[in-house]
C-alpha cells in the first residue's frame, strides 16, 4: 500500500501550516497502520476539534469529525455498538486536557478498546495560539502575555493513573519509536494512548522566541529525557515541563481486562 492508498489525495494540499509536526505523525501512523495488518474498511477514525481534529478527514476510511473535546465519547459508542470495528481517535491537548478531560480519564478507567493518538503541541494552534492545559510554565501564548503561571497537565501520567493498558510518549524527533509505539497501541487490547510532543511553529514557536519549525523541533529534541533517566532526576523534573523537560518512552504496558470483555459484550 502506498501513502495515497491510505490518505485522500483528492483533499491535497492539506490545511496544516508549513513545518507542523502533524505531517510526521501522519507519516509514522501510515507505516504503523500498514504493518499492523488492520483492515482499512473495518477501521473508523474519530477526531475532535483543532488541528489534530482534521487528520481523519485526510484518511480514506470511515471517519467521524466530532465536537470539541468529545471524540472519545463518540468513539466509545461506535466501538461498543460494533465490536468488529477498530476505532482510532486523533486528538490534541485542547480536546484531551481541557474540554474533554473527563472523557479521557473515564475511558482510561473503563479501559475502552480504543487507540488514542494525541498530538500535543502545547497550545491552541487553530484558534491563534492561546495557552492550553499543557503549555509549559512561564511560556508565552496569546492569552499568557506575561508568561503562563499555571502548572501543566502530564497527559501520559494521567492515562497511566486512570488505568489505560498502554501509554507511550515520544516527540516528532523520535520517528521510529513513535511508529513502533503506534503499532503496539493499535494491536493492544483495551485503551491505548500514544502522546506525541509536536512542534507548532506558527503559534507556539512564534510566541516563544523560536522563529522556525526547526527551532521548535530542536527544543523538543533537547527537552526529551528518556523515562529511565527521568526517574533518577528530582521529583520536579519528573513532572512534564515543570522544568521544561519532556519525559519520553513507554509509560505502561499491562493487560487489565478491557471494557467490552468486562461488560460481556465480547468474550
Amino acid at each position: 500500500m502506498n501513502f495515497f492508498d491510505f490518505y485522500r489525495q483528492d483533499r491535497w494540499p492539506h490545511m496544516f501550516c508549513p513545518g507542523c509536526g502533524i505531517g510526521t505523525v501522519m507519516n509514522a501512523f501510515f507505516h504503523a497502520f500498514v504493518e499492523s495488518g488492520l483492515d482499512q474498511n473495518k477501521t473508523v477514525f474519530v477526531a475532535g476539534i483543532g488541528c489534530s481534529g482534521r487528520i481523519p478527514g485526510y484518511i480514506r476510511a470511515d471517519s467521524l469529525h466530532t465536537t470539541h473535546g468529545r471524540p472519545i465519547a463518540f468513539a466509545g459508542g461506535i466501538k461498543v455498538a460494533d465490536p468488529d470495528l477498530k476505532v482510532v481517535v486523533f486528538s490534541g491537548d485542547g480536546d484531551l486536557g481541557a474540554i474533554g478531560g473527563n472523557h479521557f480519564i473515564n475511558a482510561c478507567r473503563r479501559n475502552v478498546e480504543l487507540t488514542v493518538i494525541c498530538i500535543n503541541n502545547y497550545i491552541y494552534g487553530m484558534t491563534g495560539g492561546q495557552a492550553s492545559t499543557t503549555t509549559p510554565r512561564d511560556f508565552f501564548s496569546s492569552t499568557t502575555p506575561y508568561g503562563n503561571r499555571e502548572y501543566p497537565f502530564d497527559l501520559s501520567e494521567v492515562a497511566v493513573a486512570a488505568g489505560a493498558n498502554y501509554v507511550a510518549r515520544w516527540t516528532t524527533f523520535h520517528v521510529k519509536q513513535m511508529k513502533k509505539a503506534m503499532q503496539k497501541a493499535l494491536l493492544k487490547d483495551g485503551f491505548s494512548f500514544v502522546e506525541i510532543a509536536s512542534q507548532c511553529p506558527a503559534q507556539f514557536g512564534r510566541y516563544n522566541q523560536m522563529n522556525s519549525a526547526r527551532q521548535v523541533f530542536e527544543w523538543l529534541k533537547a527537552s526529551a529525557v528518556p523515562r529511565s533517566k527521568a526517574s533518577k532526576l528530582s521529583a520536579d523534573h519528573l513532572d512534564l515541563n515543570l522544568m521544561g523537560k519532556i519525559t519520553v518512552g513507554e509509560f505502561v504496558e499491562r493487560n487489565r481486562e478491557s471494557y467490552m470483555k468486562a461488560l460481556g459484550v465480547l468474550q
Binding site: 473508523v44 474519530v46 470511515d62 467521524l64 466530532t66 465536537t67 468529545r70 465519547a73 463518540f74 468513539a75 466509545g76 459508542g77 461506535i78 466501538k79 461498543v80 455498538a81 460494533d82 470495528l85 473527563n102 472523557h103 473515564n106
Partner: peptide
C-alpha cells in the same frame, strides 16, 4: 452503558447510530 455525563451519553448514541 452508564457514562460519565449526559454529553458522553448523547455522543455515544450518535457514535452507535453510525454503526447502524
Amino acid at each position: 452503558l452508564q457514562l460519565e455525563d449526559e454529553i458522553t451519553a448523547i455522543a455515544a448514541i450518535i457514535g452507535a447510530s453510525w454503526t447502524g
